[in-house]
């Protein structure tokens, strides 16, 4: 049992709604990084989906903007124990990217500019459960928060919502991403507190 430090509270508001176990609410949006912030301009941004058969589907900025976007209000949960309620995003449901993708894969790996990766079961990206977002709180998504485009998978811990998205690869087997290779949970459900493998 850790020693409690009198008078130390961090800076955390109280929650009116339940938060996942072991989580604390924050009003901030902490910026966490594992490397230099990639410098990607929206006009030159591109992403691809590559299937297990090696077939590639690509989008550039204009191509992404041409897809039907949605406004999304969700709670987000970071495994480092902060949660943030009612965050507002705008983006394209991942389903819209898959209309022409033929795959038997059950798993996806999201790839970021800068080299970050994270694995997510393909089903968790579909059926309106995940978005490719380019706006946060009514503004273009800032580079610090993953702009120009990041993945948003709000029902999983936030490390699954890859920042600086540059593509998805599809796989027949689950392939651990960056943090998953270092012992974090392959799935990462905050409500069952799947922090570590």
């Amino acid at each position: 049992m850790a020693v409690v430090t009198r008078g130390f509270g961090g800076r955390r508001p109280a929650s009116e709604r339940p938060v996942p176990p072991g989580q604390y609410l924050t009003d901030d949006f902490p910026v966490l990084s594992t490397g230099p912030t990639p410098n990607v301009d929206a006009p030159t941004w591109e992403m691809t989906i590559r299937t297990e058969a090696g077939v590639e589907h690509g989008w550039d900025w204009a191509g992404l903007q041409a897809l039907p976007a949605e406004d999304v209000t969700v709670d987000i949960h970071c495994v480092t124990r902060w949660s943030k309620q009612d965050t507002h995003w705008r983006g394209v449901p991942v389903d819209a990217l898959f209309t022409e993708v033929e795959t038997a894969a059950e798993f996806a790996v999201a790839h970021s500019f800068g080299g970050y990766t994270t694995n997510v079961p393909l089903d968790d990206l579909l059926d309106g459960r995940a978005w490719v977002v380019s706006e946060y709180e009514g503004e273009p998504l800032a580079p610090l928060h993953g702009g120009p485009v990041r993945l948003l998978v709000p029902h999983l811990y936030l490390w699954k919502s890859a920042k600086w998205l540059r593509g998805l690869t599809l796989h027949l087997d689950d392939e651990p991403g960056f943090w998953e290779q270092h012992g974090y949970h392959p799935y990462g459900d905050p409500w069952s507190e799947q922090r570590y493998a």
Binding site: L32, S33, T34, G35, P36, V79, T80, G115, W159, W179, H182, G183, Y184, Y196
Partner: peptide, 30 residues
């Protein structure tokens, strides 16, 4: 070193490639 709260990521001073990742798991440092 980028001291991400999920784990410290040490990068090469010359090429920025990841050299080492340290994660302090509750059941032991990895």
């Amino acid at each position: 070193v980028y001291r991400h709260p999920m784990g410290a990521v040490a990068r090469c001073r010359a090429c920025t490639a990841v050299l080492l990742v340290v994660v302090e798991h509750p059941d032991g440092t990895r």
